[in-house]
Design a protein around this nucleic acid. Structure first.
Lengths: 156, 156
DNA sequence: ACAGAGATATTTCTTAGGAAGAAGTTCATC
DNA sequence: GATGAACTTCTTCCTAAGAAATATCTCTGT
């Protein structure tokens, strides 16, 4: 059985590539479902918006330095400047100078931003229950999360 | 213990959102590592390129209709037309008219495209061993792949 | 045979994001 | 103090991809 790809150890190249491809497909297919109908402006919510709102909401004072927020959501500095512009234009985010270090600019959630973050989290969680928890079960979700954490930590 | 988030069932909203966020972080951190130095033009290989090459390579005659390939890699029809232009301009892909249905044009791998696909697969597999298999182990990879497959199938 | 519905690829227009560089700010060292 | 290195943000230019409109082609029903 020289080409058995389902043995209990030593996966072959094709098995590895296929397995990783499956992870991509799963995320590609499911992610659009998980932010459906969250944006109050009618459409769905753009990918990074949710991450930005949630991270700001969790932070003391609902504020974080621009550059740190950019790093946390894996955007370039320039890219995040424009994303912040869009969020600010919609009234969800404001910039605020830091009194002790005049290099840094805080991104701070407006009241409307907080309201949107609350609603987005509730809706996102409901969709997660429907499309992920219902499929994998509580144990499956925890196994997935443990695997993801191991991969993330190893990549740093 | 009304807010226990680590029990054996009924995950809370925050646990679900965090778990899913971890999956995103893991992929975001690892994916760039898995295509490092594959593009012969010096830099790394763009995301969808690898998927396109591999799918074409697996297909009989190394050819597939444009629209089908676009669907398989989750690109819009227009977006894929331009991606095919870029691949063709580099000499990895050629267009070929279908003799039986004059609406469809096949995307077909050139010899250079086949060579690139071979090398990209080998390199990608090596990087998968280093960054994924070494971290999760063979069982971990198979668990991950099973979870991903369940999610993907449920999303369709 | 023919009209219309559906499929297929391309073109055009718009937007999101990355890369490189400029300007201003802080901090450490002399 | 003065100088220079390092950091933060912003601006400009470029590429990638989506959406809508268009042109061809095929198929179906009458």
């Amino acid at each position: 059985m020289e080409s058995d790809t389902r043995g209990t150890d030593a996966p072959g190249d094709d098995e590895l590539i296929t397995a990783w491809g499956l992870v991509h497909e799963a995320l590609r297919d499911i992610d659009p479902l998980l932010l459906k109908g969250i944006d109050p402006s009618g459409g769905d919510m753009a990918g990074p918006w949710f991450e930005v709102l949630v991270r700001l909401q969790r932070s003391p004072g609902q504020r974080l330095p621009m550059s740190r927020l950019a790093r946390e959501v894996s955007l370039s500095s320039g890219g995040f400047t424009k994303l912040a512009d869009r969020l600010a234009h919609k009234g969800y985010l404001a910039r605020e100078a830091c009194p002790t270090d005049r290099r840094v600019v805080y991104a701070v959630l407006t009241p409307q931003g907080r309201a949107l973050a609350d609603e987005a989290k509730a809706r996102h969680a409901a969709l997660l229950r429907e499309h992920v928890l219902a499929v994998l079960g509580a144990d499956g979700v925890r196994r997935l999360s443990a695997l993801a954490r191991a991969l993330r930590d190893a990549a740093r």
